[in-house]
Amino acid sequence: MGNEAYLQPRVVEDFATRSALTPAEVAALGEAWPLVRGDVLDVGVGGGRTTGYLHALARSYRALDISPGMVDACRARHPGVDIRLGDARTLEGIDDASCDLVLFSFNGIDYIAYEERAQVHRAVARVLRPGGAFVYSSHNMRILGGAFPPVSLPGVKVTANPLRLAVRIARAVAARRTREANRRRLAGDQVMAQGHAVVNDEAYDHASLTVYVDPAHELDALAAAGFVDVVTIAADGRRDLDVLDDPWIYYVAWKPG
């Protein structure tokens, strides 16, 4: 997927400084509120943005991430918490039917190859108890309009100080070159298909590939994995909209009880 960006120290540091829940996350966790107080698995935990909230509420809390740097950062921020290196595609080491709630926040599922996305759905279904919930977010293909986004251009904040302005311009030029180089490197891996796209978007200077899915396509995929009664939530926390046109969509999917 070309996502070496998420192993870089500057990206790990960025994730380690984040703390707030988004309105969509508050709404999504509210949908499954009784389960938040049960046995929680926090997948793709990053720097521990969600750990402080969930660990305080859950009967038991475990977290995992595929990046060693992210795991180290999360452990440093939340000492004594069960934080492990692990792969969302297998959830190896997590027993069958041992979780009430699985959270995969901040579009983490979108940095797994699209062809392996169903593995995540199945692994989560395996570890959930009957009546458990899978809460996660994903980029919305509908915002693309059938076209890949252009390389984003860095802005320059104007200042009256000529030396400071020169430094800012030089940094913007360097950033633009980096973004254009990353686009050239990853452009051939972009895909526009029925129901999903693989996109070299602006994240971290266009250094990664991101999966975007059509919400209708994702609902079908969740049903194929055995999930039912899926709730969709927009960025501002509104649920089950007729038109799902937000950049990110949250899904709350239930394992049959």
Rank of each mutant, 00 (worst) to 15 (best):
Y251H: 08
G38H: 05
A197Q: 03
A166D: 03
E13S: 11
V252T: 06
V198F: 05
T50S: 10
R122A: 14
A113E: 15
A133M: 05
D189H: 15
R18S: 06
Y6H: 03
R89W: 15
A181T: 12
C74I: 08
L91F: 14
K157M: 10
R176Q: 12
V173N: 03
D87W: 14
A118S: 14
L35H: 02
R122T: 12
F227M: 03
D214A: 04
P154V: 12
Q190K: 00
G47L: 09
A175G: 04
I66A: 14
Y114K: 03
L163E: 12
D189R: 15
R49T: 13
R62S: 14
L29M: 06
D205Q: 05
N200G: 05
A16Q: 04
Y204M: 06
I169Q: 12
R183E: 02
F134M: 05
I143E: 06
V199R: 06
D110H: 01
D229Q: 02
A216Y: 04
L103D: 05
P149R: 02
H78P: 09
H196Y: 15
V135I: 10
R168K: 14
R183M: 10
Y114M: 08
P215K: 01
P130F: 00
A16L: 07
Q8A: 12
P34Q: 01
R129G: 06
Y251W: 11
D201N: 13
Y111I: 14
V228Y: 00
D205A: 11
I66D: 11
I233R: 13
N161Q: 08
P150D: 09
A56G: 15
R84S: 07
G195E: 02
V127S: 00
C99H: 06
Y61M: 05
A32I: 07
G145R: 13
L35E: 10
I143P: 07
R239K: 15
G131V: 08
A16D: 08
E31I: 04
V12L: 05
L144F: 11
D87P: 11
R184D: 15
A174I: 02
A160F: 11
C99L: 01
R142M: 10
E115S: 12
N161A: 11
H217N: 06
Y251K: 04
D214G: 02
R171M: 12
V158D: 00
L29G: 04
L241R: 14
D214W: 08
Y136K: 08
V158A: 10
